[in-house]
């Protein structure tokens, strides 16, 4: 498969960063080393030939029973070049830690908070990493596959 421009640029600047890549169903995807995300994101945003100026989404996937267990998924979009890019980081830690993208995109703030709340991913350098969807006192991270779907932690009313 021919490497895309973004792939080549990243490999040129950070030779060790890209672990794998694919373009399943036309979605260009790169799997990076976890530590490289902030630098690569800065390159993607600021390089004049890439200009991925939109951070569309941050989420995580829990592949329970697989090594590595967690994937943190970023979706970028370049408005001038009309292109999309998906970047994935993998981690096998129980509470993976990755660098926050808040210095580059303001919107990363809430997206990362949500990811932390529901999956328990820690974002290093985030200004306010607290629960956003759920409440103080909620134990666990509900979108993990090992969290039972109906395990309720009500504030008032009958317990489970």
């Amino acid at each position: 498969m021919e490497k895309s421009l973004a792939h080549r640029k990243i490999e040129e600047k950070f030779p060790q960063a890209v672990l794998d890549s694919h373009a399943q169903h036309g979605d260009e995807t790169l799997i990076l080393r976890k530590e490289a995300i902030l630098d690569v994101a800065r390159l993607l945003k600021e390089d004049s030939e890439l200009q991925f100026n939109f951070l569309m989404d941050i989420t995580a996937v829990d592949y329970l029973g697989r090594q590595p267990r967690f994937e943190i998924v970023y979706h970028f979009m370049s408005l001038p070049f009309n292109r999309r890019l998906r970047i994935k980081l993998q981690s096998d830690d129980l509470y993976p830690t990755v660098k926050s993208l808040t210095p580059l995109w303001k919107t990363a703030n809430w997206l990362e908070r949500e990811c932390f709340d529901l999956y328990g991913i820690r974002f290093e350098g985030h200004p306010n990493l607290t629960r956003i969807m759920l409440y103080e006192g909620f134990e666990g991270h509900p979108l993990r596959k090992d969290y039972p779907k109906t395990k309720r932690q009500p504030l008032i009313g009958p317990q489970n």
Binding site: L118, R131, I132, M133, L134, Y135, P142, L143, K149
Partner: peptide
């Protein structure tokens, strides 16, 4: 502060 209508869309879809 948001989250008052969090009703677990993703968890429901997965089931």
């Amino acid at each position: 502060e948001i989250g008052y209508l969090h009703r677990a869309f993703e968890k429901s879809c997965e089931a």
